[in-house]
Amino acid sequence: MTTGSAFDRASRARPAGWHEDPEDPGRQRWFDGSTWTDITRRPPGKRRASCRCC
């Protein structure tokens, strides 16, 4: 990662846990307390659009 990246700026003073993904605000990314991981998810409560048959 380069200094000043979205990840660097978003890491300052964050506890470990799920946070808005610095590269994709529509997702959450796991921060382990010192490093952003590759683990992402949709935020709870946000459902994918589905068709009437699904």
Score class of each variant (00 low, 15 high):
T35N: 13
G17I: 11
W18P: 13
R29K: 12
R9F: 06
S50D: 00
K46C: 03
D8F: 10
G4E: 07
C54M: 01
R52E: 07
W30M: 07
W30G: 01
R48Q: 06
T37I: 06
G45K: 09
P43E: 00
P43V: 02
R48L: 14
R29F: 09
K46Y: 08
W30D: 05
G17C: 01
P25S: 09
S5V: 12
C51F: 09
T2F: 02
G17K: 07
G45Q: 05
R52G: 05
A10W: 06
Q28D: 14
G17H: 08
R41L: 09
R47V: 08
T35H: 13
E20K: 12
P15F: 12
W36K: 05
I39E: 14
A6S: 12
C51L: 11
D32C: 03
T35M: 10
I39Q: 14
P22F: 04
G45C: 05
T2V: 11
E23N: 13
A6H: 07
P44M: 01
F31K: 13
S34A: 15
D8T: 15
K46W: 04
K46A: 02
E20D: 09
A49R: 14
D38P: 00
F31S: 08
T3Y: 14
R9E: 12
D38T: 14
A10L: 06
R47Y: 11
T3S: 13
G26Y: 03
P43G: 01
D24G: 00
T2Q: 07
M1Q: 09
T37W: 03
R52N: 05
H19W: 15
F7K: 11
R41K: 12
C54D: 04
A16P: 05
G17R: 04
I39S: 06
K46V: 15
A13F: 11
F7P: 01
S11V: 12
S11F: 04
D24L: 08
W18S: 02
E23S: 11
R27P: 00
T37M: 04
W30A: 03
W18Q: 04
C53M: 03
Q28G: 06
C53P: 00
H19Y: 10
G45F: 07
T40S: 10
R42S: 13
G33D: 03
C54G: 00
D24N: 13
P25D: 00
D32P: 00
K46D: 01
R12Q: 15
D21P: 06
C53F: 11
R27T: 13
R27N: 10
A16G: 03
I39T: 15
M1T: 12
C54Y: 00
F7M: 11
A10T: 15
P43T: 01
P25T: 05
P25Q: 02
R9I: 15
P44C: 01
G26H: 07
S11C: 11
A13I: 08
M1E: 11
S11D: 11
R9T: 15
A49Y: 05
R42G: 02
I39L: 14
